[in-house]
Design a protein around this nucleic acid. Structure first.
Lengths: 362, 362
DNA sequence: TGATCATGCAAAAACGTGTCTGTCAACGCG
DNA sequence: CGCGTTGACAGACACGTTTTTGCATGATCA
């Protein structure tokens, strides 16, 4: 009776259970649970007393027991696409890192933690972790994992509008068509006569929508499409494709690259062919990387705002988990941001000293 | 009796329990558990029958119940340092992304999943998730979270040797001193007379060891140290510090930058001051980014091999969790790799066409 | 044939919570 | 004084597994 820490059962030494707290405080288990969770109707004196005893014993409620009882684990899956046996692809490093960072913060602020779960995980890993819901990044056409999750009744929110008729709970995406059209107009305004595109061969929605928008724009303004496609997950194919694009007989005088490394690849290719940027070649690429602020010349980039996307996705998911009737629509479109730098302006501002980049948020 | 799916209790509809499977298969609960886990001694016929019935009912064992019973959750914490309220710092993007990627793969291959847990999480989040062990990245001097985890008896493996007397289970690190000395020798061999250092103001082990090695090298060869320190977590301070370093009266003719963005920052600063690289200024920086293969000129980088570190850390941790007497020493040193490019060679090779970069592993 | 033993399976005890149901006293009111 | 009501707490159960124990049944051996 004097030593309440040692429960009658040989639970792991050093771990006090709720029974020990109840015994040490001289109350019942119910009272301890209610006091710690602020649930029942107890006099403040009892509440304080129980809390103090719990602290003194170093009591930590068992996450497994709580999950089993309540059905909520406080865990959110972060499903990333896989290429080969690696979780996420090379071209998405900066995007993924920023998105995951924001998602982690947002989840944490609401008491949830993120579990990294590649889409092609062994099945037993998926079923070995109790998830309250899942974020899927760029779900592919008929992803069996996502379908199964939805069928199990788990909330699923996707980054990128779902392909096909994938019945996700909600999704967040940019307006990729508008972004591409905006860039093409921007380049045309800067004097581009023939705009090329560096795109991918994969079938994900981002690539598809962007390429389609490009083709439609070309048709509208009466320009012949000039583009090269390459497998975006292959880090060395990009440089080759950039080279091919600039080696064509109908060489473009402006290029938009859909993937993060395209900027440096195109710049290097341009140098190889003696093309000056932006005088002979205008350049824009889609990237979250800050290196493009300090290249020679600095390159105009399109930011997809991964931090806002990561935050929005998690908020939507947790709202769904907790049954909050979300004020937001279940389909949320995040605006993109075009960061205009020297590479896309025919008349570069006379300044050659680029100011230090700003740490500005989102 | 005919409809076994509906258990007597109103469990979540659609979720079949082990009882339902037992009833449907006409066997006991024990038999189902043994059959699915391959544990008891059962005739193959029974085993196959039970498995088939389980599949037909779409049975998925409850992760929470299993964790409660066995004490193992299959979850590994990935603890990242925080600056401000954001999980990981700006200068470590590429490193973290690669390291996390490798760690995720390695964990997955052994049936574990990773949970992202910033060090400064709210306490309730930490205690709300059942962890089998934790990976800590660059644990600070007296991290209360790590101490508590160790005190709870949880295995902890750190990326970066632990500062102070932090009693971690094992750690993995590079030999930072040897790496810095190697780079300085490399630069001196290339003709550098006064080598500068771009370093950080924080007190983490990496910064400390590297700076100390630099100072010792200077003392050994009789050169006055020339260095600038800046808060590495501030993305815009780096450019300013690079500028300061090259504006000094005792301007160095070679610089090593400890952090990822230093390369482009130093390159931009050099251009501002009309310094040619590598003719007037030799450059090396520590980075995992591939952009430095295609800058003008390509910049020599030091890779810390984050993929090998991530893999090693997870292996060590899981070995500890499963009680495997690890063959490896508990302190593991991963060699660094110096990727020599134009920026650190006084006589650049005559080729101006840089070959496409290789997708080679680790 | 009876004792021994391996085999195939069932019953039941945990794991540590949250929560539903009940008890007991005090109290107000008719 | 009897009775319903309310506050403060205790007892017991259920969540869904894994695992230990134990009971039959048939085979083997002295």
């Amino acid at each position: 009776m004097s030593r309440a820490e040692t429960s009658r059962r040989g639970g792991r030494p050093g771990r006090a259970g709720i029974r020990d707290v109840a015994a040490a405080a001289g109350v019942s288990i119910t009272t301890v649970s209610d006091a710690l969770n602020g649930k029942g109707r107890l006099p403040d004196a009892t509440r304080r007393h129980v809390r103090e005893v719990a602290d003194r014993l170093g009591y930590r409620p068992s996450a497994a027991a709580r999950t089993l009882r309540t059905g909520k684990s406080g865990l959110i899956g972060l499903t990333v696409t896989t290429y080969g046996d690696e979780p996420f692809t090379f071209t998405e490093f900066a995007y993924f890192a920023e998105m995951a960072r924001a998602a982690t913060s947002a989840a944490l602020a609401r008491g949830y933690a993120l579990v990294i779960l590649p889409a092609t995980s062994r099945h037993d890993v998926w079923s070995n972790v109790a998830l309250d819901g899942t974020v899927v990044i760029d779900p592919s056409d008929q992803d069996p994992v996502v379908s199964e999750l939805v069928r199990q009744g788990l909330p699923v929110v996707s980054d990128g509008r779902p392909a096909g008729a994938l019945p996700v709970t909600a999704w967040v995406d940019n307006d990729h068509e508008a972004a591409v059209l905006g860039i093409l107009d921007h380049l045309a305004d800067a004097g581009a006569r023939r705009i090329g595109l560096l795109t991918g061969t994969s079938t994900d929605t981002y690539t598809h929508l962007s390429t389609t928008a490009y083709l439609r724009w070309c048709e509208r303004v009466g320009q012949d499409p000039v583009y090269e496609a390459y497998p975006a997950h292959d880090p060395c194919a990009g440089a080759v494709a950039a080279d091919r694009l600039l080696a064509r007989p109908d060489r473009p005088d402006a290029v938009y690259g859909l993937f993060d490394p395209n900027g440096t690849d195109l710049l290097a290719a341009a140098r190889r062919y003696g093309l000056r940027v932006p005088e002979d070649l205008l350049l824009v690429c889609c990237s979250e990387s800050t290196v493009y602020a300090n290249t020679e010349p600095p390159i105009t980039t399109l930011s997809l705002k991964p931090r806002r996307i990561g935050t929005a996705v998690v908020q939507l998911l947790i709202d769904a988990i907790e049954g909050v009737e979300s004020e937001q629509p279940v389909e949320q479109v995040i605006p993109t941001e075009l960061i205009v730098r020297t590479s896309s302006q025919r008349r570069p501002p006379r300044t050659t000293v680029s100011p230090p980049r700003s740490p500005e948020e989102t």
